[in-house]
């Protein structure tokens, strides 16, 4: 057995999986607040990555400025999506809103292709050193950065939902809109805030992926991975989404290992997470951490 490859793939899985977890978390945020399944999550990553890339390459903005500008832009962009496109649909069935997010996903991805082309664009170098030594293992700097950023996002989100006024308001709104409103919470601004934060967090993930792999339309594929991750975690559990993401990341890489060493089927790592998802849902129909009332989905 090729142990070195296995270790390398497991680290890979952990790093990518944590990133999936972050994206899944931002997806769950919208779902939890408004029961909307956002099919345009991957495009939010893509837009964030392109905006940052554009600032850095076209205007030579340094990364430490380009990144915050991107995040502010995405925050406002998230609010704009909610206010301009989704708010007029309040009172319509949830399924119509979900259809609209599918449309948004198509429109955004077409727009990105039109504006930035279809080719992979390398991201400007952010770090000077390529590799660092961690416990005798050579690890790419960007991998460490990815893991650190993901963990920071996760801790930040945990803080947000436990202790911040907006985070609590979001959970209260998710549970009972009428009671939340009678306590002075504006449901409209809670929804707008959910989209704003979700878009911002997704953009962080998008930029991280871009720094590692460059930017291309393929980046929005991360949006597809949130489904198994979030469903695995139970759709309405933020912690579950993170764990779901890590599991999917590890599964992919273990499948890749098994495939390349023994089976040679070629694409096992792409489908393995979905098989695992089906099996887990057969055992635990509400996901690992879900509550019963998401049955209607």
């Amino acid at each position: 057995m090729n142990t070195q490859l296995l270790v390398q793939l497991l680290i890979n899985g952990l790093v990518v999986g944590t990133l999936y977890g972050v994206v899944a978390m931002s997806f769950v945020l919208i779902y939890k607040a408004s029961q909307v399944v956002n099919f345009a999550q991957g495009e939010l990553l893509l837009i964030g990555a392109w905006v940052c890339w554009w600032l850095l390459t076209k205007y030579q903005v340094p990364f430490y400025l380009g990144m915050p500008i991107t995040l502010v832009f995405m925050f406002v962009f998230g609010i704009a999506i909610q206010v301009v496109i989704l708010r007029p649909m309040i009172g319509e069935p949830i399924i119509s809103v979900i259809m609209v997010t599918i449309a948004l996903s198509t429109v955004f991805s077409a727009m990105m292709k039109w504006m930035f082309g279809v080719n992979l664009q390398p991201f400007p170098r952010v770090f000077n050193t390529q590799n660092v030594n961690v416990l005798g293992l050579q690890v790419q700097t960007v991998y460490l950065m990815s893991l650190a950023v993901s963990l920071a996002m996760i801790v930040g989100m945990a803080w947000f939902f436990r202790l911040s006024k907006y985070g609590l308001a979001m959970r209260a709104t998710a549970f009972n809109q009428q009671v939340a409103q009678s306590l002075g919470i504006s449901v409209k601004s809670v929804f707008a805030m959910a989209w704003a934060i979700s878009a911002t967090v997704s953009a962080v993930a998008g930029v991280v992926v871009a720094v590692v792999n460059g930017v291309s339309a393929g980046l929005s594929a991360y949006g597809v991975k949130v489904f198994p991750a979030a469903i695995l975690g139970g759709l309405d559990s933020v912690g579950g989404a993170v764990l779901g993401g890590i599991i999917i990341g590890l599964l992919e890489n273990v499948a890749h290992f098994v495939d390349s060493e023994y089976l040679h089927w070629g694409n096992l790592y792409e489908i393995a997470p979905f098989y695992a998802l089906i099996i887990i849902l057969m055992i635990k129909p509400y996901g690992l951490f879900g509550t019963k009332d998401i049955e209607r989905v």
Partner: peptide, 15 residues
């Protein structure tokens, strides 16, 4: 709000 703690329920009332 049953999923929130007693303290969080109280905090939500603060305007």
């Amino acid at each position: 709000f049953p999923g929130l703690t007693v303290r969080q329920n109280l905090m939500l009332g603060i305007k």
